[in-house]
Design a protein around this nucleic acid. Structure first.
Ligand code: FES
Ligand code: FES
Lengths: 141, 141
DNA sequence: GGAATACTTGACTATTTTAGTCAAGTTTAT
DNA sequence: ATAAACTTGACTAAAATAGTCAAGTATTCC
């Protein structure tokens, strides 16, 4: 089980952006340089974040991106959702009554994986971008 | 983030095996048929489980595998460890002082991913094979 | 002893996913 | 006008996954 770069970068980039929240737009070029993420890849990611209304774009020179909501209101869940980084522990389709083995009942481990998925998603539901910025701020003292 | 088949199958197969704990060895062929897992793949998995002393093999006709420890003492952590299904949320090396971006300090999200990793591993540390067998047993009534 | 069952090992491969790159635009501040 | 910066879509190399395949060894039962 591992976290993919897309999810990691999305959160990393937003954490960078959130530090300048409401001051001025941050260009992807700056994020790219500061965080060491490919500019082209960031563009892909921010295109998705914009579609899900997590960020707003400001075009033209001195443009960039700004948060579209308060940092406190942006949970990791929202970010992961936007970039399609999803937690997937079940093999079967959750809605279906069939099991992952093709049989008519759920497999021996179905409930276990379902619990695991909830356990992980709980973490993402709780953490906001704001928590992240604050914990980094405190780290400096 | 998703669970791989190797980890899923390892737990599924052991859950099947645990139901016959101390009665008689269970052949991989039976597990393969009941759980719908490729026999060749199961062999790979059980080879690893045997090396980590989670199961014992019984050769010959009527042979198979039996648990090497009490089901209560086999945690998911042990199983995942044996088959190399590891939780990996950090990009950087944990011991190193360098960040994932190659810089000399840890990145903005490092602590967050570290927390996440612990959160997930807690789940695996708590759950035992025994819990799994019992919850399936109860399900029948 | 011979056949059948079942474990054992190692190498090999197709498919899928990931992590990007590349190219050709459009928009806007200065 | 020009440069900075967003926008979109297609493409691709590399890695990981999920197995398969082949050849062999050990043990029990008849
Ligand atoms: S994971 Fe849902 S039935 Fe196996
Ligand atoms: S994940 Fe450890 S420094 Fe970024």
């Amino acid at each position: 089980m591992k976290l993919t770069s897309k999810g990691r970068y999305a959160v990393m980039a937003l954490a960078d952006l959130a530090r300048f929240d409401n001051i001025s737009p941050v260009s992807l070029r700056d994020i790219s340089l500061r965080q060491g993420i490919s500019l082209d890849y960031l563009e892909q990611i921010f295109s998705k974040l914009r579609k899900k209304e997590i960020v707003q774009s400001v075009r033209g020179t001195q443009g960039g991106y700004i948060l579209n909501r308060k940092a406190r209101e942006i949970k990791l869940t929202n970010i992961f959702d936007a970039v399609d980084e999803k937690v997937k522990t079940l093999q079967c389709k959750k809605e279906s009554k069939k099991g992952c083995n093709g049989k008519s009942t759920k497999c021996l481990t179905h409930n276990l994986w379902d619990e695991l998925e909830n356990h992980i998603n709980n973490f993402f539901d709780k953490k906001s971008l704001d928590d992240l910025v604050k914990s980094n701020f405190e780290r400096k003292f």
